[in-house]
Design a protein around this nucleic acid. Structure first.
Length: 205
DNA sequence: CCAAGGATTGGC
DNA sequence: CCAATCCTTGGA
């Protein structure tokens, strides 16, 4: 059974910055033993290619990062600092390394915890590296769908902010690229709160 | 094999 | 500000 709102492969098979921006307002769904746990995405980050020194792919297709080099629309979950699981979706062309980290959401359904921050979001949705890494988001267990009732991605009144990515100071000048995206003023966006910055460079209108 | 450090969080 | 906690990576 194909859900009419589920995002399909072509959505993910694009530049990760475009995917990251378009994921705002979409709903990440985990069907956990028949229980739906879902959050509306309000904050993302794009990781762009093997050259991106902030990306796990910067060392090439290692055991952890090889999934980023694979086909788009697949979940990439890793454990960071020995504590927190983080959910990403692989983007772009098969063979090139890119992904979008989902950093925060608004609780929609069945959330077990706060949904602000990538580790918290995974905890709220009961997502773990051991059980969910490598899952195809075209399946029925883990996927992203358009918000109910909404037509496009963000609601009309909501604006998108672009700002530098969080905690990637080790990446030199790559840390300055405005590849973090969030919904302006949303109370579920994580700290540090993004400094207002136009996305017009990325999406001229 | 070993050392270093991390796409975080919560507490002081 | 800082420690927790363990996985991943690079280098000897």
């Amino acid at each position: 059974m194909l859900s009419p709102r589920k995002l399909l492969r072509p959505f993910y098979a694009r530049d990760p910055r475009r995917v990251a921006k378009d994921l705002l307002g979409k709903v990440l769904v985990h069907v956990d033993g028949g229980v739906r746990r879902a959050a509306r995405i309000v904050e993302t980050e794009a990781y762009c290619g093997q050259e991106d020194q902030a990306s796990h792919a910067r060392f090439g297709p290692t055991r952890r990062a090889c999934i980023m080099f694979g086909p788009p629309g697949v979940a990439y979950l890793y454990l960071v600092y020995g504590l927190s699981h983080c959910f990403n979706v692989v983007t772009g062309e098969d063979g090139l390394a890119s992904a979008v980290l989902v950093r925060a959401g608004e609780p929609v359904e069945g959330c077990l915890h706060a949904t602000t921050g990538p580790g918290n979001l995974c905890r709220a949705l009961a997502l773990r590296r051991e059980t969910h890494n490598g899952l195809d988001l075209m399946g029925d267990l883990l996927f992203i769908e358009a918000a109910e009732g909404a037509e496009g991605a963000p609601r009309p009144a909501e604006r998108t902010l672009a700002s530098p990515r969080v905690n990637v100071g080790f990446a030199g000048s790559w840390a300055d690229r405005p590849w973090r995206f969030s919904l302006e003023g949303n109370r579920f966006v994580s700290k540090p709160w993004p400094t207002p910055r136009s996305t017009s460079r990325l999406r001229p209108r």
